[in-house]
Simulated assay, not measured.
Amino acid sequence: MKAAKLAFGLICLAILASNIATMSRWSEARGVYDDICYLRQAHLFQRFGAGGLDTNAVRDDDRYFEGKLKDIAFAEWKDPIRWPCHNPMPGGKVVLQYPPGTGFLLALFPQGHQVVPLYIAASLILCGLALSGIAMARSLPSVLGAGVFGALAVYLMINPAKASYSVAPTMALCAVAGFLTALWLARGKRSVLLIALIGLLLGASVNFRLPNALLAAGYFLFLGIPFLWTRSLATFVQGLAFGAGVLVGMAPTLAAQAINAGSALSTTYGSADLVAPAFDLAVFGQYLRDMQIVLIVLAIGATLSLLWSREGHVQQAAFVVAGNLAVNLGFFLSHPVFTPYYVVPIAMLSLWTLSFARLLQPAEAREAASVRREPASLGALPR
């Protein structure tokens, strides 16, 4: 088993090294609108600090964004109304549509060398958790499972994570939140501080992509339904701590919306981006032909498998994931717009949670499960 752990650990490190070598050759001027818009947010943070939350087009007085538009040969670079990723607000301002989190992380690195360090940092977090999972495995099947999943998770930081700068930090947060969720459920006495931290991380993920708000849905169902049934004070406190964590985590986005759109609950997205759910067979077909369907099948299969577990915390992790998958897949698969990364966050959060839930299974529970699966010996057969 030690040889298997070493082999999978080396595989994960080899994929990480290959990813870093590939990432080091990436260009920050690949002609994608989203890229330069995230970089504009980063530039505002570097110029104005917290004042960078205000993304009004008039603040481009140093012509930074105009220069980026010229670099990609955008014809209407002079007219802010025509700028990509920007929308006019009722007050007359033209502002960035994206939440501020991705730009904030990019701003931590020097201008011109921001994207590669962000992706490398996120990849290191994922690889660290993958190696931890391999080290925690206590049987050959669990080593194989942790090793294959860890290698897949690290590889995904190249494709599809490259499709949007917001995906890389989302992937890292989902991995950490998945581990903490399994840890929270594995403890006999569930920590209020730990569930608050999980809520904080999931709330913070909203600062990268607004649809990440759906990642908290399964937790609210898991905590809310038992409270409605039992009216337990402990369950209420857990739910309150989680909700408070989510709210604090997404505070930067609420502040940015208040500054740019006039209200914390008003979106900076234009009406063209607010697409109502409507099932579209063509969009569903795109998911079936995309890498995302593999992740969806893996997440659903692992959830169904663990729902039948007799180990309490493993089964409860599956309940959290099941609720989360139902809400998120129900939304995205009925959303008449397709991208190569829409369901990646929920799939990865689910798989990290289930993987660590199984790995954190107490030794005595593993032994009991092993005994239940073993056939009776000849000596024990009835005569």
Rank of each mutant, 00 (worst) to 15 (best):
L53D: 02
D71Y: 06
G52Q: 04
I134A: 03
A261M: 07
Q286G: 13
G249M: 07
Q316I: 12
G31Q: 07
L126G: 09
W184H: 08
A122I: 06
L140E: 13
S263W: 04
V154I: 11
D290G: 10
S377N: 13
Q46P: 02
R231E: 10
T353D: 08
D62T: 12
E367K: 15
S24P: 08
V143D: 07
G218N: 01
D290F: 10
P375W: 12
I120C: 07
C85S: 05
S232N: 08
V154E: 07
R366S: 10
G301N: 05
A357H: 04
R383K: 12
F279C: 08
A380Y: 07
R366C: 12
F227C: 03
R59N: 09
A29Q: 15
P375V: 12
P141Y: 06
G178W: 02
S305I: 13
A282I: 12
M348I: 15
R310S: 10
I296W: 00
A278W: 05
Y342K: 00
C174L: 14
R82S: 13
I20P: 02
R358V: 14
L295R: 06
V206N: 04
L333H: 10
A7C: 05
A264P: 07
G133N: 03
F220N: 03
F104M: 01
S334E: 09
A14V: 05
H86G: 05
G145D: 04
A302Y: 12
Y155K: 09
I125R: 08
S350E: 07
G103I: 11
R373Y: 11
K68R: 14
A368R: 14
Q238A: 13
P169N: 09
I225R: 02
L354E: 02
K189L: 09
V58W: 09
W83K: 01
L16Y: 01
